[in-house]
């Protein structure tokens, strides 16, 4: 599978850009948090596309964001 570059992304309509990023992010997140992958991916997709592209290139920053998202999700669920 070819890397998702900023130029390939920019060529897609806005509503497809997040979907394209999500399709790449989901399997990476699923490897770490199988049960929460859908929610975590949805949370991370709220981040700017440029930052999401950097995260796809950098497993370390991706995993840091995943842990951040899990903490936010748990805090959110505790409030419900």
């Amino acid at each position: 599978q070819e890397p998702l570059t900023a130029s390939r992304l920019a060529a897609a309509p806005l509503h497809e850009q997040k979907q394209m990023i999500g399709e790449r992010l989901y399997p990476l997140i699923h490897d770490v948090h199988t049960q929460l992958a859908g929610k975590i991916t949805g949370m991370l997709l709220e981040i700017d596309n440029s930052e999401l592209l950097l995260m796809l290139e950098s497993p370390e920053s991706l995993h840091a964001k995943i842990e951040e998202a899990v903490a936010v999700l748990q805090a959110h669920q505790a409030m419900e």
Binding site: L14, Q19, L25, Y26, G38, T41, G42, E46, M79, E80
Partner: peptide, 26 residues
């Protein structure tokens, strides 16, 4: 809870249009 945040975050599933897109490109 006022009930408005229960559906947050919008979950993403491969091959399914992400519902969070409604906020970005209605």
């Amino acid at each position: 809870s006022n009930g408005s945040s229960i559906n947050w975050p919008p979950e993403f599933h491969p091959g399914v249009p992400w519902k969070g897109l409604q906020n970005i490109d209605p």
